[in-house]
């Protein structure tokens, strides 16, 4: 039981962060607006959760310009993928 709890990731206890990671692991990358629409959250809320995931090095940020407008794309890092998989496995163990 203790081992299982260890694998449950604090970072994913929040629904928005869990949503961001779930969307990013099945897509090469997503931009800010797409994430916002998918999750149905405000700019500020999304930005703060993105920042915290970035800090944990679970997601990567790429900035580029499309028609001179900034377009920021986010993608999951290898570490982030592993963390989410571990988290899901831990939940499945718990539910058994």
């Amino acid at each position: 039981m203790k081992n299982i709890l260890k694998d449950l990731n604090k970072a994913f206890e929040n629904k928005v962060r869990l949503g961001i990671m779930s969307a990013l692991v099945v897509n090469d990358s997503l931009n800010f607006n797409t994430l916002k629409k998918l999750l149905g959250v405000t700019d500020g809320n999304l930005a703060s959760h993105i920042k915290s995931l970035e800090k944990s090095e679970y997601i990567m940020v790429q900035k580029e310009f499309i028609d001179r407008k900034p377009n920021t794309k986010y993608s999951a890092t290898e570490e982030g993928r592993d963390a989410l998989v571990k988290h899901i496995k831990a939940i499945e163990q718990l539910l058994k």
């Binding site: 869990l18 969307a23 099945v26 897509n27 718990l94």
Partner: peptide, 22 residues
């Protein structure tokens, strides 16, 4: 320990994966 929360989390993960990629 809240089983229902985790069941819902799993549902959310699946739903988000589907909605964002299919």
């Amino acid at each position: 320990m809240n089983k229902e929360k985790y069941i819902e989390d799993i549902k959310d993960i699946k739903d988000m994966m589907n909605r964002s990629s299919r």
